[in-house]
Nucleic acid binder design. Structure first.
Length: 259
DNA sequence: ATGGTGGCCCGGCCA
């Protein structure tokens, strides 16, 4: 089973790139973030024609997440069950091929002194609560998405440049660790050298200068981690091509052998 | 030297 996650920075703008990427890389399950669409605008038919069922959770111009699956898609949950999302449409979950999959778009946080930073920490806490409440021990779980947290100092191009910034602060790393402490493994690190990034700022030619961050993660439960045969970032998707401009994020993939 | 780019949708927000 091939799992993938990709923050597409507008599915409207990126649809040709997304369909091209699916054709080329054949994910079984694909988590999308920042579709920036209402549910009514989501191109369900396009993906259905390609053999994918979808669950989308979006209400307009901000955020928006989706799950695409060609191995079944059932028991869809949109948003957190416990509370109305204050800045919503950041999580959708479904069971795909026997795995409880979550597509997440963790709040950015903006800056350490911003109220949205507190919201980011609270959101990660709610994610842990959702796992506790909906995934009994032994459940096969995958959480893929844009976490807006770099787990390690080696996940940013220059730790000194990030001092005092979001994405690297101790509290948000601790909040991410709390999610992982449910029993989730960042298997990407087993297959890739430190300094392998998934996001590069559009500004300043950062992609070409190698100034990136790894903030897009696919976290999996131990049974899936044991089945992992590889994981990679598709840097080609960060480059402009005939199908249009790129997102500022590149897709991340995890491959699992059959159970 | 307080920028830069891109997407929302058309002045400003958000990343």
């Amino acid at each position: 089973m091939r799992l993938a996650t990709w923050n597409v920075n507008s599915l409207t703008a990126r649809l040709p790139r997304v369909t091209e990427w699916i054709e080329a890389h054949q994910p079984d399950v694909l988590c999308l973030q920042e579709t920036k669409q209402a549910d009514a605008k989501y191109p369900n038919d396009v993906f259905e024609t390609m053999g994918y069922e979808s669950a989308h959770h979006g209400d307009g111009r901000w955020n928006g997440v989706a799950l695409l699956s060609r191995v079944g898609l059932s028991d869809v949950v949109r948003g957190f069950d416990s509370a109305e999302e204050a800045h919503g449409c950041r999580i959708v979950a479904a069971t795909c091929g026997g795995v409880r999959v979550h597509s997440v778009y963790v709040p950015n946080g903006r800056s350490l002194d911003n109220e949205f930073y507190g919201f980011k920490l609270e959101w990660l806490s709610q994610l842990r609560t959702m796992l506790d409440e909906t995934c009994p021990p032994g459940t096969s779980v995958a959480v893929g998405g844009d976490f807006n947290v770099a787990p390690l100092d080696s996940d940013v191009w220059d730790p000194a440049a990030f001092e005092g910034m979001t994405h690297v602060s101790e509290p948000e790393r601790a909040a991410l660790q709390r999610v992982m402490d449910w029993g989730l493994d960042d298997v990407f690190t087993r297959f890739n050298a430190p300094g392998t990034f998934s996001w590069w700022d559009y500004r300043g030619g950062d992609f070409h200068l190698g100034r990136g961050v790894r903030m897009d993660l696919i976290l999996v439960s131990p049974d899936l981690a044991e089945r992992a045969t590889g994981s990679f970032v598709d840097r080609e998707a960060r480059k402009t091509n005939d199908a249009g401009k790129p997102s500022d994020h590149a897709p991340v993939v995890v491959d699992l052998r059959d159970s």
